[in-house]
Amino acid sequence: MRGLDQQSLLGRRALLAGAAAGLAWPVLRVRPVAATPASAKAAMDEILKGREPTPGRVKLDIPVLADNGNSVPMSVRVASPMTASDRVRSIHVFADGNPLPVVGHFHLGPRAAKAEIATRIRLATTQTVVALAVMADRSVWSDALRVEIVLSACLDD
């Protein structure tokens, strides 16, 4: 029952936080060491393989002020007819302030009807999220968004 153990741990922390802040509410959270933008760049380079991404065609959608970093709704839409020759092959999402910069790689197969995915992601802190789309002609397009987190996700509680 990890959830409960975690809660009692939070209780202790809350006391410490309370002593510092005068109010035990809510808990102060510890952040893991964030990925340096350099490691985010290295992760993107694995996809880019020397290519330059062009801003455009990709639309990243995330609330710019997210209520809880544990679960932030995110969608990526790419303008593409999704025909056999003119289509998006893959979508890649990165978060430069997370302990690991890669959020996910999404490969769209021949039966994908739209160049679109949506999911919910964790953001450890206020940071920039980047989406890359790799097209059938090997060109890469991108979008980026700065997302502010009201309270950090408890990645290290």
Binding site: S71, G104, H105, H107, L108, A118, R122
Partner: peptide
């Protein structure tokens, strides 16, 4: 769709496509 997920995907993973 084939998705390679990382720890940055929220608990109880949700995907729409």
């Amino acid at each position: 769709l084939r998705a390679e997920l990382q720890p940055a995907i929220a608990a109880n993973p949700f995907l729409v496509f």
